[in-house]
């Protein structure tokens, strides 16, 4: 790891900190670049001992495609929920157990968050052995269909990234 020897224990954290500081300073200026660089170099140095393990992404470009899909689905989700809320018909909620094939902790976290932000579903719990994800769906006809959609749309790209 050349980046590590040069004093960057977590290169991605450094990049993220620098970018976040530019956002906080409301635009790029000389002062914000200098301060951002200092923080981006010093903070990973101080905190790298606290990180339990360094997350590794095998295919970063899949993440970009994934984010675009998720962003689109967030908008669709809000419109779906809006229709359900304003519809006088009572919704048909259900708890669904979703069998996980993903076992990377960060991957499961991202999947659970995605499920919460996308149409009609909130993820509620992960079983203790990490094999099942409990999902509450606001309005669902066919549980098997829901499980298949989540697997095809969200879990597949995450599997590509984390395994």
């Amino acid at each position: 790891m050349t980046a590590e020897r040069l004093g960057f224990p977590q290169p991605w954290l450094t990049v993220a900190l620098f970018v976040v500081w530019q956002f906080l300073a409301d635009g790029v200026s000389g002062a914000s670049v200098v301060m951002g660089l200092i923080l981006a170099i010093v903070i990973p140095q101080i905190t790298h001992r606290f990180w339990p393990d360094h997350p590794r992404l095998s295919r970063p470009w899949v993440l970009v495609r994934y984010l675009v899909v998720v962003f689109y689905d967030i908008i669709v989700a809000s419109i779906t929920v809006t229709i359900l809320i304003l519809n006088p018909r009572r919704p048909r909620p259900a708890f669904v157990s979703y069998p996980l094939t993903l076992n990377h902790p960060l991957g499961v976290t991202i999947l659970a968050s995605t499920i919460s932000l996308t149409p009609g579903t909130v993820s509620s719990d992960v079983s203790d052995d990490g094999r099942l994800l409990l999902i509450h769906a606001l309005d669902v006809d066919d549980e098997a269909e829901l499980i298949r959609t989540i697997h095809e749309r969200y879990e597949k790209p995450l599997l590509e990234m984390f395994q």
Binding site: P93, A94, F95, S97, L117, V122, D125, L132, E143
Partner: peptide, 28 residues
């Protein structure tokens, strides 16, 4: 938003908050 929703759902399941009758399936 998803993180706090998840925490609240867990708390609600722990307290056995009432579910509407139409709900199919059960929290484990």
């Amino acid at each position: 938003a998803p993180v706090s929703a998840n925490f609240l759902a867990k708390a609600a399941m722990h307290l056995n908050v009432e579910r509407s009758e139409e709900t199919r399936g059960q929290p484990w």
